[in-house]
């Protein structure tokens, strides 16, 4: 195959390729929105059916960890956006560190999440494994925790993929940073910000309800 030219044969130019890649990333994000959308519908339906149970379930989550995690993720997103903004071969060192920093914050998020999971395990709040919750709201709480575990697990999976992407890009930037990696970085950044946005909504749905009552 006659490869080795600067751009693949289906593209006319480098900007053409870059715009195409960006568009592809946005289509992918639209797909992801609907993936989480199914979960959100389930959440809304059951929160409507079991308002008390969902409030009670929410009160059993760790708002400190949740808030800290949100701040961690927002900061990490900020670092990535910063890296995209200043990306050039001249700044490759800073960009590398920014990406490493963002990835480390991602790992902090995962670690805190694991801590939270283990706490919930100890409190017997994991449906299907050791769920025990006495009282009238048990059904609602159980449905809440089913949603909680599935949604946060899928989100954490996205985080892990994102961390992998960031580390890969950090390595690339360290070794040989050229203009053409800007597109790759930009796409990875879009993905990372999207994961951030998902978390912003999950935070509002999981940690905040029921705090004002008891």
């Amino acid at each position: 195959m006659p490869e080795s030219s600067a751009v693949a044969p289906q593209y006319a130019s480098i900007p053409h390729r870059d715009h195409t890649a960006e568009l592809g990333m946005w289509v992918f994000i639209a797909t992801e929105v609907l993936l989480f959308g199914g979960l959100i519908l389930a959440y809304l339906v059951y929160r409507h059916a079991f308002p008390q149970g969902f409030a009670a379930g929410s009160r059993h989550t760790e708002i400190v960890i949740g808030t800290a995690n949100t701040a961690v993720l927002l900061t990490s997103s900020f670092l990535v956006a910063w890296a995209v903004e200043i990306f050039s071969p001249a700044t490759s060192k800073i960009v590398t560190w920014l990406l490493v920093g963002a990835a480390c914050l991602g790992l902090v998020f995962i670690a805190l999440k694991a801590l939270e999971y283990s706490g919930e395990y100890d409190e017997h709040l994991v449906p299907g494994i050791n769920f025990q919750f006495a009282g009238p709201k048990a059904n609602g709480v159980q449905l809440f925790f089913i949603f909680y575990f599935i949604a946060t697990a899928i989100h954490a999976l996205h985080m892990l993929i994102g961390i992998g992407l960031l580390i890969t890009l950090a390595i690339i930037c360290r070794r040989a940073s050229t203009k053409r990696h800007h597109t790759a970085l930009h796409s990875a950044a879009l993905y990372w910000h999207f994961v951030d946005v998902v978390w912003i909504f999950l935070f509002a749905l999981i940690y905040l309800p029921g705090r004002s009552t008891s």
Partner: peptide, 14 residues
Amino acid sequence: IFAGAGLFWLGILL
């Protein structure tokens, strides 16, 4: 439009 499409269809679903 692409960014909004996902949200629009999410709105339909919800």
